[in-house]
Design a protein around this nucleic acid. Structure first.
Lengths: 220, 220
DNA sequence: TTACAAACTAACTAGATGGTTAGTTATATC
DNA sequence: GATATAACTAACCATCTAGTTAGTTTGTAA
């Protein structure tokens, strides 16, 4: 990070309550609180005061550490896509058949949605309110889309997948993985007895998504 | 509608500019403008002044005709689901095999997204900001989900579809249809040469969605 | 232990925002 | 064509919000 710190503060930034002053911990806490608030209300709808309240720090700290609301928003947008790509890259997909690789990728994508439940929503707001301008500046979805498209093209080239439009199919796969979470609060009323975030239901979502997509793209 | 009007005003409410005073036309214009604004910013993020500006009528008219922002929001939420069901019901799906019925339903769902590009977004905000409370009061997605689930179950019972979880698969199908539009502004950067709303691209979306889902659920 | 810079707070400001109100104009009906 | 009333406007108010500022506390290192 360039900065040399003599004593490394090991306090978990996101969970434990702040006790003393600690730049990195405070910034991380503001970022996490901001991610949640931006997920609910988007850039313009989010109140800096609400972020501050979640952080346990005064509103002025947001401006002290991040300059203004927009810069904080951009900092929040930096994290999603690079984290997804990182998750994909630990899977060694090149070593697998296209079919196995696609199954693993879908599982990883859904598990990512579970691990970071706010990020899909932040990006929705971003598309909606700001036409994706800020997200585009931070790299956008390009790497993730390329990653999935390339995998699909490989499957088609190898003959294990039927001919398909890689871009459209990538969009369909992203929709399959994320809609379940993004629309969760509307879906829950249609299945009141189920907890959509329980491990069992998430597993059913993963299994169903893999079954649908693999059967859907396979060369039968 | 209960009210007797001697002369029916035939001016198209949504498009042509207002010229004289006309309750129904004004209310419809406010509703359409509100749908757009709520789609971008959700309930809390939407500024009544912005709705007024789009309508060409003063802000006070919103309160005159709808009482307050929340009541206007609820009026906007009344329209989406009933319109989808109506679209489904004109398709005579019971007369078709499950496979043909599902194909037609997907086409109709996507065409609905094209016809009313804001409604999916309004519902996303609703899920996100208000945990779907208001939408639930207006009926929610229940009828649409039931409609699709029943169709899937019929296909499974007939043996033309493989065994599958109807609820999960319904969510996947909804995601396939709507993500393309809801994330459009983020997707467009990944395919800058394409106009995602052009008839050709929408047709490719429809074809791809049908191909993926039908192959994905079929008993091979 | 003292001195200093970074981290932090409380109180504030200018401008926006939901909602109101008092008054104005169009329109249907007699 | 007079008139009652529904449709509408302009100006207003109380409250809220992004961002600022002046001053206080804390860790650190000489």
């Amino acid at each position: 990070m360039g900065k040399v710190t003599s004593k490394k503060k090991e306090r978990a930034a996101s969970t434990s309550p702040r006790r003393t002053r600690d730049t990195e911990a405070t910034k991380a806490q503001i970022l996490n609180a901001a991610e949640e608030e931006f997920a609910r209300h988007g850039l313009s709808g989010t109140r800096t005061e609400a972020i501050a309240a979640k952080t346990g720090v005064t509103k002025a700290m947001i401006f002290y550490h991040f300059g203004n609301k927009e810069k904080l928003y951009r900092a929040v947008l930096k994290r999603p896509c690079s984290d997804v790509i990182q998750a994909f890259e630990t899977l060694d997909l090149e070593q697998q058949t296209a079919e196995v690789a696609l199954s693993r990728l879908i599982r990883a994508a859904i598990e990512y949605c579970v691990a970071y439940p706010h990020r899909g929503k932040v990006l929705f707001h971003e598309a909606n309110q700001n036409q994706g301008r800020y997200f585009q500046k931070e790299g956008g979805w390009q790497p993730a889309i390329d990653y999935i498209s390339n995998l699909l093209e490989r499957g088609v080239a190898e003959g294990s997948f039927r001919p398909l439009d890689p871009f459209i199919t990538t969009a369909h796969i992203m929709g399959i993985c994320s809609f379940y979470f993004d629309a969760r609060e509307n879906l829950k009323y249609a299945a009141p007895e189920k907890d959509l975030l329980s491990p069992d239901m998430v597993q059913a979502h993963i299994d169903g998504a893999i079954a649908l997509v693999i059967a859907g793209v396979k060369n039968h």
